[in-house]
């Protein structure tokens, strides 16, 4: 029986309230960004994205988000396997630590990274600086900040699936002669591949949208260490509203595309 067949007066009121709430809070404002971005025509939209600084910002976002997603893929899967397949002291603490990025403000993350890695008096940054390696105010720091904020997304998608598939198939593979890596590659990985895809798509959306942590570690230098989100703020404050809305619309569109991809993929798994 479908729920909407039972809708009474109360149901209609509830529906109205929720729809109004979502429209006022999400749909209308986001829609306006697109409206502003395209109000002077599609040519203006594209030309405002072609200035060298904006191009650089977009390319930097792709670089930073790309690295962050790859790193989160490798470590996310490794951490998930560790949390689900092994029992060791401190396992629950590790599990809680993974969720810290969800609860701590990205600005705090940025400040924390600066404290550890800045080249002047950072706890570890001075050592790295003597090796000629600069983290803060440079791409590595921005990648680290982005990795940090997107860390739980792959792990939280993969761990429940790993738990659900259990160890029977892995044990069967071992008894049939497969070694550890063969078992992982041929049995475990195919079992969690959709969970990894969801996690990655969410990580992409989160990574391209990161602002606070990246702003603090990057130094926000236009044309050098400015990502797309930072460029939105900069152009907006410089009254270049057309560019600000165009970049914002592009970011919003990419994030929505990610969510649509997840929505299309998700039902496939539940057969």
């Amino acid at each position: 029986m479908r729920a909407d067949r039972r809708t009474g007066a109360g149901g209609w009121v509830l529906r109205g309230v929720v729809v109004t709430y979502v429209v006022l809070l999400v749909a209308w404002p986001t829609g306006l960004v697109f409206k502003r971005a395209f109000q002077d025509g599609i040519d203006t939209f594209f030309s405002s994205l072609t200035s060298p600084d904006v191009q650089h910002a977009l390319a930097l976002t792709v670089t930073v988000a790309g690295w962050a997603v790859v790193i989160n893929l490798v470590f996310g899967v490794a951490i998930s396997l560790l949390l689900v397949r092994y029992r060791f002291p401190g396992r629950r603490i590790l599990s809680v630590l993974i969720d810290v990025p969800l609860s701590v403000s990205p600005v705090v993350v940025g400040l924390a990274l600066v404290l550890v890695y800045n080249a002047r008096d950072g706890w570890f940054g001075t050592t790295l600086a003597t090796w000629g390696f600069q983290v803060i105010f440079s791409t590595p720091g921005m990648i680290m900040a982005t990795v940090f904020v997107a860390l739980p997304l792959v792990v939280r998608e993969v761990t429940p699936v790993l738990e659900e598939i259990g160890t029977d198939q892995e044990q069967a593979a071992r008894s049939l002669g497969a070694g550890g890596f063969q078992t992982f590659w041929r049995i475990t990985l195919p079992g969690i591949r959709w969970a990894i895809v969801y996690g990655l798509v969410l990580a992409v959306a989160r990574s391209i949208g990161e602002f606070g942590a990246v702003k603090i570690v990057s130094g926000n230098i236009t044309g050098q260490s400015q990502t797309a989100t930072l460029a939105v703020e900069q152009t907006y404050q410089n009254f270049d509203h057309q560019a600000a809305y165009a970049i914002a619309a592009l970011l919003a569109f990419t994030a929505m595309l990610c969510l649509i991809v997840v929505a299309i993929l998700r039902p496939k798994e539940q057969h």
Partner: peptide, 9 residues
């Protein structure tokens, strides 16, 4: 195995 442990994919 009791629960078959079929390779589902």
């Amino acid at each position: 195995f009791q629960h078959y442990a079929a390779f589902k994919h």
